[in-house]
Measured scan of single mutants.
Amino acid sequence: CHSECLGNCSQPDDPTKCVACRNFYLDGRCVETCPPPYYHFQDWRCVNFSFCQDLHHKCKNSRRQGCHQYVIHNNKCIPECPSGYTMNSSNLLCTPCLGPCPKVCHLLEGEKTIDSVTSAQELRGCTVINGSLIINIRGGNNLAAELEANLGLIEEISGYLKIRRSYALVSLSFFRKLRLIRGETLEIGNYSFYALDNQNLRQLWDWSKHNLTITQGKLFFHYNPKLCLSEIHKMEEVSGTKGRQERNDIALKTNGDQASCENELLKFSYIRTSFDKILLRWEPYWPPDFRDLLGFMLFYKEAPYQNVTEFDGQDACGSNSWTVVDIDPPLRSNDPKSQNHPGWLMRGLKPWTQYAIFVKTLVTFSDERRTYGAKSDIIYVQTDATNPSVPLDPISVSNSSSQIILKWKPPSDPNGNITHYLVFWERQAEDSELFELDYCLKGLKLPSRTWSPPFESEDSQKHNQSEYEDSAGECCSCPKTDSQILKELEESSFRKTFEDYLHNVVFVPRKT
């Protein structure tokens, strides 16, 4: 048989008469490798580009789960590009990614509803959504962080984005990388972005840091009482949809009607710091009717980097990364020049730590249904340095008659930039024990000054392991946590139920 035959053949030295091919099969003959313009397919066939392209389009058009959109890589027609490569849609070739590779997620039936953290986790790592997304989240724990972890990498949506009755959302900033909504599939009414009845939605994105392009379709905003109209108009300008909307697409009466839409800028007039305090004062603000001013709200939190936005980490279910302080308005003076500047002394802060701070007014709604208010920009203030805590785990070892090696770990709280350490030492008198000992005694162990690591005695271990207080009263049991108490109650309830079950099964009433 021919060298490319495997198993047997019907005619000697003829690659077209093989029972099976050793390498690849091409047009009725066995070959060692697939010549151009053919590609290896499933490690035994040679196919042309049209064959591989037909497989790709067949799966793409069917949208069946589990099928493969075949691509070409290293002269092979394979189910998908290997790690580190992405497909070129024009020629199906796998090309190296520039940075992290995109991950295209194809949605069944063309859309997916995100109504819980669990459903959001199914899209973790996706960068391109081939379909439409509907966000409908009523509640949950730590929602802002969970949504950002699972949806934060999405850069492109081919269909539309719909935010509907998501009472738990305060902001859409968890879509931190969303840059493009194509609108290839539109919501009824030709809408590519749809926001309806979101009672706590206050911000779409921080438009000073976020760009969003909507290729096709219109915007729809109705019944978002805490979303200011200025935020919607800003989205029109940034996304390129200005002029597409009709009169009733953006409701003037049901958007922002319960919001404090600040239209003035508060400026800080005085800032002073110490290692654990920050004193702030800002310019006074009074609405047209000074009785509408209820006070100020001061927001602050630790910020290692200057990239904080107002609604980071917030949701309507209680999660809030900001510390909020309510401040009463100052006494009002008739003389504008003698107006008191409101302020606040922030206490209990960490030394040498940068804080993000902003302040906003708290006002009631005027009778004319106009909203007044003022808010400052987010500023960054760093507390002063102070003395560091003591170095940890000092170790001293003498390696000769004239040297001592000293080692330690950095302090747990540096409280500033540590530039150097101060080492103090003092000579001590020799131990009298060394002169009084009889060095001729056998088995004498000389006193040693070398360091030995501390260890816990058996008594201390027994005390720590004991669940009861000892007789001397030195140790006591740790208080039980809520989960331990709940577990004990469940076990007790189970024992009672099981005992009742045994009584009912074992003891049967005697027939009379």
Rank of each mutant, 00 (worst) to 15 (best):
S158E: 05
Y194M: 11
E187Q: 08
S400L: 06
Q245F: 05
L169H: 04
I378E: 01
I271A: 04
D335C: 04
K226T: 06
E262F: 10
S260E: 06
Y372R: 07
E155S: 13
R247P: 08
S366P: 02
W322H: 04
I378C: 06
S208H: 04
E122I: 03
N150C: 06
I114Q: 00
S389I: 02
N150W: 10
T371F: 05
V359F: 02
V363P: 10
K218P: 11
Y300I: 10
D393M: 12
E236L: 07
T118P: 11
L180K: 10
L201C: 03
S319C: 09
N263C: 10
D115A: 05
V397S: 11
D326G: 05
H233K: 06
R247T: 12
N340F: 14
V359T: 02
D312H: 08
L204S: 05
R369P: 05
Y305A: 14
Q339F: 13
Q354R: 11
R138S: 14
K234A: 08
F174T: 03
G217D: 00
T386S: 07
F275N: 04
C261L: 02
R247Q: 10
L293T: 03
P342Y: 07
Q306K: 11
F296T: 01
T323Q: 13
H341C: 15
N141V: 13
T323A: 13
R244P: 09
D289Y: 06
W207A: 04
L227M: 09
Y160G: 04
T185L: 11
D377H: 06
L186M: 11
N340H: 12
N130Y: 04
F220L: 10
Q382M: 13
I188H: 09
V324A: 14
F175I: 13
L212N: 01
R164C: 06
R347Q: 09
L147Q: 02
R244D: 07
L153V: 13
L265A: 04
D312M: 13
T213S: 10
S208A: 15
N248W: 12
S400F: 10
G348P: 13
A120S: 09
G125M: 13
S389P: 03
S333A: 05
V128G: 12
L186Q: 05
C261T: 03
P284F: 12
L172N: 01
L266M: 09
M346N: 01
T371K: 06
T383L: 04
T386Q: 05
K253W: 15
K350L: 11
N200L: 10
A144Y: 04
K103M: 04
D197I: 01
C317W: 15
L252F: 14
K226E: 10
D206A: 14
G295T: 05
K253N: 07
S400A: 13
G373C: 04
S402Y: 13
A168T: 14
C228P: 03
I188G: 09
K350F: 06
I157G: 00
F299D: 00
I114M: 08
K253F: 10
Y191W: 04
I181Q: 01
L266E: 00
N248M: 09
P411N: 01
N141L: 10
L169V: 12
W322F: 09
W282E: 00
G131P: 01
E283N: 11
P288N: 11
R179T: 11
R182Q: 04
I154V: 12
N334M: 06
K350N: 05
W322L: 02
G189V: 13
K226H: 04
D335R: 11
A120I: 06
D115C: 05
C261F: 02
S230Y: 02
L108H: 14
Y167A: 15
Y355F: 11
M346W: 01
W282I: 04
D312I: 14
N320I: 05
L196W: 15
S338C: 04
T213Y: 07
Q403C: 08
N200G: 03
L212I: 07
S132N: 11
P287T: 12
T323I: 08
D115T: 12
K162L: 13
T213I: 11
F220K: 14
Q216H: 11
W286V: 05
L293C: 09
L180D: 13
N142M: 06
Q121F: 11
D197N: 15
V170C: 09
D292Y: 07
R281L: 07
P225L: 06
G159I: 00
T323H: 14
T361W: 03
K337Y: 13
E264A: 03
A195D: 00
S166G: 11
D289C: 12
W205S: 01
S171N: 06
D292H: 15
D367Q: 07
C228F: 03
I188V: 11
I188E: 14
M346V: 05
L345Q: 12
D367V: 15
N150I: 08
S400V: 09
P225S: 07
Y194D: 08
L133N: 00
Q203R: 09
K350Y: 12
T273F: 06
T353V: 07
Q354G: 11
G243F: 09
K103Q: 10
G189E: 10
S166Q: 14
S260V: 09
G243T: 10
A303T: 11
G256E: 10
H106L: 07
W282K: 00
L266W: 01
C126M: 01
P225E: 05
L172Y: 02
T353I: 12
S333M: 08
I379N: 04
A316S: 07
A168G: 03
L293Y: 02
R138C: 02
P411D: 04
K253S: 10
E187G: 12
I137L: 04
F268C: 02
K209L: 08
T309F: 05
D384V: 14
P330T: 06
C105G: 00
M235A: 10
T213P: 02
Q245G: 15
D289E: 04
T185P: 09
G240L: 15
A195M: 13
V104G: 03
N255E: 03
T127L: 06
D367F: 06
L151K: 00
H222R: 09
K277F: 15
K103R: 13
E246V: 12
A145M: 12
I134K: 01
R370T: 12
Y223N: 08
K267P: 04
N307W: 09
I157W: 00
S401H: 04
K112T: 05
T386M: 10
E187K: 13
W322Q: 03
T215S: 13
I379Q: 15
L153G: 10
V117C: 04
G159C: 02
E109K: 08
G152C: 09
Y305M: 13
I134D: 13
R176Y: 10
C317S: 10
I214M: 12
T113R: 03
E184W: 12
G139Q: 14
T254K: 11
G295I: 04
T371P: 10
V104P: 04
I214L: 09
D289M: 03
G183Y: 02
E156S: 05
G343F: 03
